[in-house]
């Protein structure tokens, strides 16, 4: 993770700061111009500022860190202080074309519920997360028997905000179980560059440092909040 190492640990969940300059190309590339976008855990709003400016999107954000919210609003962005685990419930169905959750899924309290809400309030969900199946993570756990510490997973277990790590294959399994169709996916290295082994899930799960998915619900019934039950 690109978590800011200098930031004091807090008692609540703190979304991990992200390297948007590198993520930007990948996520922005998935988002249609002029669309309505909600970026959950938007930090200081770099992505929505880019989408609003370059793509003409109606881009808004939610962020849990108040200093980042103040910074974003002071930049003229539509960002509200809120918690992904609580505040998504207050948005109406299908209010957005894209709901983005970049490198935040592993830090929320109820990831599957957050995903459900994303696909309720938006037509498509764009989700990126650090891959816990990366070979370096596996090797450290196997060889040392200790929780891995890598450039991506860079905080000790007792102070990491990343309480729900998952692998790329885990995420595919969750999408199957909940009835989300994966419209696009790729595995990327830490620099955000897509790697050649992306076509094979098992290889991607071994060598990809992060996964990026674009999801859509199988059933397009609006107002249906229990997507899992309508899965084929």
């Amino acid at each position: 993770m690109n978590a800011e190492p200098n930031r004091a640990p807090s008692t609540g969940i703190r979304y991990v700061a992200k390297n948007l300059r590198l993520d930007l190309r990948l996520i922005a590339g998935l988002i249609a111009p002029k669309s309505r976008v909600l970026d959950i855990g938007c930090g200081d709003g770099t992505l929505i500022a880019y989408l609003a400016r370059e793509r003409g999107c109606d881009a808004r954000g939610i962020e849990i860190d108040m200093a980042a919210v103040a910074e974003a609003v002071a930049r003229g962005l539509a960002v509200m202080h809120g918690d992904a685990d609580i505040d998504l419930a207050h948005y109406p169905d299908q209010a957005f074309d894209f709901v983005v959750l970049s490198r935040t899924l592993q830090a929320v309290g109820r990831p599957h519920e957050v995903l459900r809400q994303m696909l309720r309030i938006g037509t498509r969900a764009v989700v990126s997360f650090p891959n816990f199946g990366h070979w370096r993570v596996r090797w450290q756990l196997l060889s040392r028997g200790r929780m891995p510490l890598t450039p991506t997973w860079d905080r000790p277990w007792y102070e990491t905000p990343n309480i729900h790590p998952c692998t790329i294959r885990d995420f595919f399994a969750l999408c199957d179980a909940e009835g989300y169709s994966v419209e696009a996916w790729l595995a990327a290295d830490q620099g955000g560059l897509s790697a050649p082994w992306r076509r094979w899930r098992r290889l991607a799960n071994l060598f990809g440092e992060q996964g990026l998915f674009m999801l859509r619900r199988d059933s397009h019934l609006t107002g249906c909040t229990t997507a899992g039950t309508v899965a084929a």
Partner: peptide
């Protein structure tokens, strides 16, 4: 916050900051 959430329910464009 209650105002901001009501605005969310109305799908309005809202920023919300506690200073």
């Amino acid at each position: 916050r209650a105002i901001a959430r009501a605005l969310n329910r109305a799908a309005a464009n809202v920023s919300f900051v506690e200073v």
